[in-house]
Design a protein around this nucleic acid. Structure first.
Lengths: 205, 205
DNA sequence: CGTACATTGCACATGGTTGTGCAACTGCAC
DNA sequence: GTGCAGTTGCACAACCATGTGCAATGTACG
């Protein structure tokens, strides 16, 4: 047997690493990138990739595992020995974010599905209108956030998605979800929780 | 010519509608569902689907367009004639949520990509630890939210994703992003914006 | 140099999906 | 019943990606 069997030459290791790196970038651009695209982008032939990873799934698996391990480690490190929950959350977010910088692409990959791409594209006008509204609130001082309006619009959008998922997964009763969504979005924009609650209760009875 | 050419019989219209409805559900279960799967689920033959939609892409396009139109309408209706930004946001969220109930599946579809599936699965332990931390904060009264801890964890996760996207899209300077993320997550959990800001500034200097 | 391993460049089988063509069938309406 | 639109059931071509086999080539290292 001479064919590559998970070898460990200097060259082999370098290639393996490069393949992983390039795959990360390539899969971001196109989540459905083929093995051939990835191989070529890594300056290597398709057959070679199969020398390092037995299947496409194995490649992606490795990628995801690496990211998750680093992320879990950062998350744990951030909150270790901190008793104040607020501080623990803050620390872990900062820690995760630091390493996430490298994997930001991978995580974003998830949002760039072909179908997702289409959805977010067509949602652009709605988002634009949201930005406008959020900007007005920030200018008036009704909202207060560390984020510029466009970024805040992303947060708004994703909070909605998060709560839809929560309902789908049975973590949240559908009857309450609407109110909760409204309150949570408002809270995220910096409106005091008590005010947000009162406002939504008044609107939705 | 006798073959179906975007006809408009009662039966044809009913079929078209059923295909769309079923496709929505089927694509949720499996975003990569084939035309055959969709057709069979709709109690129809693959060839018939092509009678209504010239291509797979056209089908999905129609689906997404419908959802977005309904959503945009709800969004606009919610904020029309309301001058208070907070109230406008609350109203539009409630309005969107109401109709989104039907399209919740479609939006969730985006999160259920093959790759996304893998990521979120492996992120489970991290999320679990998050839930625990959030629960502690809620119990202590440090946090205050309309949401139960598990749902709040989803929000936490998605806010991170949102800001990563924001950075990727150039809406947020990478240098500020970490701090902003921490503050925003804390704010969403109900920690007063000023406190959150101070805490994070203290931790990250 | 020569050995050992990685890489290359084909070729090939396989499987799945898309989109189309056409003849036969079904049901509703006039 | 006659007719027409929709539907069905095949059959088919084309494409594309995956995974594997094998001989030839390249390259590091003792």
């Amino acid at each position: 047997m001479s064919a590559m069997t998970t070898g460990n030459t200097s060259r082999a290791d370098a290639n393996r690493r490069r393949i992983l790196d390039v795959a990360l970038a390539e899969l971001l651009r196109d989540p459905d990138a083929s093995m051939d695209q990835i191989a070529r982008a890594a300056g290597v032939v398709r057959r070679t990739v199969y020398g390092h990873f037995p299947s496409r799934e194995a490649l992606i698996s490795t990628l995801v595992d690496d990211a998750v391990h680093a992320l879990a480690a950062a998350h744990a490190a951030g909150r270790e020995g901190v008793e104040d929950p607020a501080e623990a959350v803050a620390r872990s977010v900062l820690a995760v974010w630091h390493i996430a910088d490298r994997y930001r692409l991978l995580v974003a990959l998830a949002q760039r599905t072909v179908t997702m791409q289409g959805i977010r594209e067509r949602l652009a006008p709605v988002r634009k209108s949201s930005v406008e509204l959020l900007q007005r609130g920030l200018d008036k001082g009704v909202f207060s956030s560390a984020l510029p309006a466009p970024a805040l619009a992303y947060v708004h959008e994703q909070i909605m998605f998060a709560l839809m998922e929560a309902v789908n997964d049975g973590l949240l009763p559908p009857s309450e979800a609407g109110r909760s969504a409204a309150v949570t979005v408002l809270t995220a924009t910096g409106v005091p929780a008590s005010l947000a609650g009162a406002l939504v209760t008044r609107l939705d009875d």
